[in-house]
Design a binder for these strands. Sequence first.
DNA 1: ACCTAATTCAACA
DNA 2: TGTTGAATTAGGT
Length: 124
Amino acid sequence: MNYQPYQGLGNLSIGNASRSYAGGSGSSGQELTVQEFENVRERIRREGTYGLARPQYSYISMITMAIQKSPTRQLALPDIYNWITELFPYYQNHQDDGWQNSIRHSLSFNDCFMKVARSPNKPG
DNA sequence: ACCTAATTCAACA
DNA sequence: TGTTGAATTAGGT
């Protein structure tokens, strides 16, 4: 099963600024925006790695980034895991700390992700 | 103080 | 692998 960002009616879509769950709600830190993603890549370029510290980015925004950065805008669950672990080494060392469970929870819970049967997909 | 949303733990299918 | 609920946490108002 693959996931893609919700492309439906207006205000739930991904890049939407009206959300502002940035530093906003929950126990999470900040949002992984496009700009933030560039900062991360810059940091990796300079230091060789992001480092072992746990990123404060919300799962939602990391999932969103992973899907957005994928050429097809669709990812399977393991692809999302891999994308996150490759970017942030922290999650390599904490493979079974429940964050993958939280990823799944986010995908199911949030309406902003759609399941897509994997086979023919017409980008619209 | 209250509302909302992200996270965590966990049952269950 | 995917859904769902409850509890916790923390920012915004």
